[in-house]
Amino acid sequence: MRTELVSEPGDPTRPNEDFAAAALPASGQGGALVVLDGVTPPRGGTGCLHSVPWYTARLGGTLTELTVSLPDVPLQEALARAIARTAEAHAETCDLSHPRTPQATAVVARWGLERVEYLVLSDSALLVDSQEGTVTALLDDRLSRLPRSALATDALVDSTVRNKEGGFFTAAADPSVAERAVTGVLPRAEVRALAALTDGATRWVEKFREGSWEDCFRLVRKEGAGALVERVRALERADSEARTYLRRSKTHDDASVVYVEL
Rank of each mutant, 00 (worst) to 15 (best):
G226C: 04
T244P: 12
L219Q: 06
P175H: 08
T170G: 06
D215L: 10
E230M: 08
A255P: 07
A173C: 09
L219F: 15
Y259H: 15
S240T: 13
G224Q: 09
P187T: 12
K164S: 02
T202N: 06
F168Q: 02
D253F: 14
V182T: 13
V182K: 07
K207W: 05
E165G: 01
D253V: 12
E214G: 11
V182C: 05
E214L: 02
A242Y: 00
G166E: 05
A195C: 12
Y245T: 01
L228P: 10
T202D: 03
D254V: 11
R218C: 01
V177D: 01
Y259S: 03
H252R: 15
E223D: 14
A227N: 04
E241Q: 06
L197D: 03
P187M: 14
L186P: 02
R231F: 12
S176Q: 04
T251G: 00
E261N: 08
E214M: 03
T244F: 00
R248M: 03
A173W: 04
V258P: 01
W213V: 12
C216R: 11
A193Q: 12
L194M: 10
V220S: 09
A172L: 04
V260E: 03
G224R: 13
Y259Q: 10
D239C: 01
L219V: 06
V260N: 06
D239L: 01
S249I: 02
S176H: 01
A201M: 06
L246T: 14
D174G: 02
V258W: 15
A201W: 09
L228Y: 15
L228H: 12
T244Y: 00
